[in-house]
């Protein structure tokens, strides 16, 4: 959805805003691919804003959303900016092969991309270590660059501390998102209950620029199907509190009035004509609870 949102905002010349969506997405996959072609996604995009603050907000919001439905998740952070800077530093041209080697943590594949011993050392460290912001410091020291990125990650962790979620966020620079439009922070969200990432996101300022707007943008998406799976299907909160409101002939409008009051109070209710049901609320001359016959007051 990110591309479509970026295009929509660009066509309206909007360079600031916060958007969210829940929608079904359809993607093209080669026939050998076993994944679903249509899937449900919930996401949020933050356009504009200060880089560290916006990235921290996106990561924290994703974790908050999952907490609110009972999924305790963690996040791994990567950086497309770091990868590109290291490519420049070691004069590596073949991004596709390098990305494949990094994403599969395959040292064997990495050796086919570069023979430079320093590059091999740095990328091996990047692919095999997982930790906090200090990891960027270690890679920066080895590579002799990335000072700015180290500062960025330290600030990001301070902001995540303030959101109370830093202990669930790790740096793993082999985190690479499939979408080519990410140009800064990228992240994957996961939970031990599933073998696949439950969501992910990242920064895509460059794509906004491609659409003609010079602004910052970050966001994330969660797979609704995988959220349901992580909750184990039966654990998905079911709303058993739906009130069933029935009306006798000639009392439909009175029942609609009652339903509006109930819904206004945030309660769930359904309306139907009375056909001898044995439980619920019955609206007639009097409004009563069917089971007990007692008067019902909303």
């Amino acid at each position: 959805m990110t591309t479509q949102i970026a295009r929509m905002l660009a066509s309206k010349a909007k360079d600031e805003g916060r958007l969210c969506y829940i929608t079904n997405c359809i993607r093209y996959l080669e026939s050998r691919n076993l994944s679903l072609r249509e899937y449900w996604q919930a996401g949020a995009e933050l356009i504009g804003g200060e880089r560290v603050g916006a990235d921290a907000e996106a990561v924290a919001l994703a974790l908050d959303m999952l907490d609110s439905i009972g999924i305790r998740a963690s996040v791994d952070l990567g950086s497309m900016g770091v990868i590109r800077k290291l490519m420049e530093r070691y004069r590596i041209m073949d991004y596709k092969r390098l990305a494949r080697a990094i994403a599969s943590k395959s040292i064997d594949d990495l050796r086919k991309v570069t023979c430079d011993s320093k590059a091999l050392e740095t990328f091996t460290m990047l692919m095999t270590k997982r930790g906090g912001a200090e990891l960027i410091g270690e890679v920066a020291e080895k590579a002799g660059c990335l000072g700015e990125d180290y500062e960025y990650f330290r600030s990001l962790y301070r902001a995540l501390e303030a959101y109370g979620c830093a202990s669930r966020v790790f740096v793993d620079l082999s985190t690479i998102r499939e979408m080519a439009y990410y140009n800064g922070l990228v992240f994957e969200i996961f939970t031990p209950a599933l073998g696949l990432p439950i969501g992910g996101g990242g920064r895509y300022d460059a794509m906004m620029k491609d659409f003609g707007i010079d602004t910052k943008a970050t966001g994330f998406a969660l797979s609704i199907d995988l959220c349901a799976k992580a909750l184990g299907g039966s654990d998905v909160k079911k709303n058993n509190d739906t009130l069933k409101v029935y009306y006798r002939e000639g009392f439909r409008e009175k029942a609609i009035g009652l339903a509006r009051i109930l819904r206004g109070e945030g309660k769930c209710c359904t309306l139907d004509a009375y056909r001898g049901e044995r439980s619920g609320i019955l609206v007639g001359e009097r409004t009563v609870l069917i089971e007990s016959g007692e008067e019902y007051e909303p």
Partner: peptide, 10 residues
């Protein structure tokens, strides 16, 4: 190795 197992059973 499964990508999530690598993280959760590091």
């Amino acid at each position: 190795c499964n990508k999530i197992s690598y993280k959760t059973k590091y």
